[in-house]
């Protein structure tokens, strides 16, 4: 047998595969290349794509989806899922609108507005905190799969929102709020800065804190992590609380964008957050994922969307293409090792 020879080829093929893997979708350089390719492609194909206006709208549209994706990615890394992020965000917005409308007198002064806005934000944060703690406790202590728990909480939260609002959109915000939300710093919208800040925060928490390292370990093997003297239940409660608090930030951005609230805003983003995470190299089975990859994946999706939009394609078609991209990325990830073994067999 040519055992020696074949093992030598194996090693070289393996290292080749590792390098290929880093360059394929899911790897950081591959994603960057894809992003560049798309930007160049659209700039050539769509007149007017390469403009300050496009960049501006890009930075205005990305924050909400980006924050929701951050809310999704933390549970994903632990091998879970939070299907309730959009319901939570919407309910939080509704609550904040309700507080502002109730407390704001007819002709308020600037100080009153600031106070009311602060109270509303506190109420929203408290709501998200409670939702996160309850979801986390249900996941951690009942042992029911997070998909089911959050399917339940999603339905419950949506139900409460719809029940209380009769499905109507709510508006009537202080103008100052919208103005602050849509302000820009050196031409960069505040929302985009918030997204960058939150991305950095989540990224550092995941990579550099005991909590974050515990999250990735739980994603690969909960029981072994528990046996390593880590309170996995407390970590899981923390994970869903963190996810829910990201929803609070998303709610602030959503309020600034829409200037109103409804139970069914942004519902179509749910899949997109999963899509962005998986595209950005987050393992849907848990254990692996970086915020940087997620951010680039988000940029890719947003560029596809803006490009198609300027190209005059329907948003429905964009949604379909996003779904297809998710399936395609997962297919490539599954098939790749097989391709490797096929090549090796030859």
């Amino acid at each position: 047998m040519s055992d020696v020879g074949s093992s030598a080829t194996n090693t070289s093929l393996n290292s080749l595969m590792t390098r290929l893997r880093a360059g394929a979708p899911g790897g950081f350089p591959g994603l960057l290349a894809l992003l560049l390719l798309l930007v160049t492609g659209f700039s050539v194909a769509v007149p007017g794509f390469a403009s300050v206006g496009t960049l501006q709208s890009f930075m205005q549209q990305l924050p909400l989806l980006g924050l929701l994706s951050l809310a999704m990615v933390v549970p994903l890394i632990t091998g879970g899922l939070n299907l309730a992020i959009i319901a939570t965000t919407n309910q939080c917005v509704l609550l904040m609108v309700f507080v502002m409308r109730t407390l704001l007198p007819a002709d308020p002064g600037g100080g009153t507005v600031l106070g009311v806005v602060l109270v509303a934000m506190l109420a929203g944060a408290a709501l998200c905190l409670v939702v996160g703690l309850v979801t986390g406790a249900l996941v951690a202590y009942t042992g029911v799969h997070p998909i089911l728990v959050t399917l339940g909480t999603k339905s419950l939260i949506d139900g409460i929102s719809i029940f209380l609002t009769r499905g109507q959109a709510q508006s009537g915000l202080p103008a100052e709020f919208a103005r602050a939300g849509n302000a820009a710093l050196f031409g960069v919208p505040v929302g985009f800065l918030v997204l960058i800040a939150c991305g950095l925060l989540v990224g550092i928490v995941l990579r550099r804190t005991p909590f974050g390292i515990s999250c990735t370990m739980i994603g690969s093997n909960v029981e072994a992590t528990r046996y390593s003297a880590i309170d996995t239940r407390r970590v899981l409660v923390g994970v869903y609380t963190m996810s829910s608090l990201m929803c609070f930030v998303a709610a602030l951005v959503s309020l600034a964008i829409f200037n109103s609230a409804s139970a069914d805003y942004a519902q179509s983003y749910l899949l997109v957050t999963i899509l962005a995470a998986v595209l950005g190299g987050v393992d849907p089975f848990g254990g692996f994922g970086k915020v940087s990859g997620l951010m680039i994946a988000l940029a890719i999706l947003q560029v596809i969307s803006s490009g198609f939009n300027q190209f005059g394609l329907s948003p429905y078609l964009t949604a379909a293409i996003w779904g297809l991209v998710l399936i395609a990325v997962m297919t490539v990830q599954t098939i790749r090792p097989h391709l490797g073994s096929l090549r090796r067999a030859r």
Binding site: I274, L317, I327, M330, T334, I335
Partner: peptide, 26 residues
């Protein structure tokens, strides 16, 4: 998708729902 591509059933079917429903609406 579930058997050959080994996508978890919930993610595969959410993706499929999005694709088929969006295409229908389009």
């Amino acid at each position: 998708l579930i058997h050959f591509v080994r996508i978890t059933s919930i993610i595969a079917t959410i993706a499929m729902m999005s694709v088929t429903f969006s295409l229908l609406m389009y």
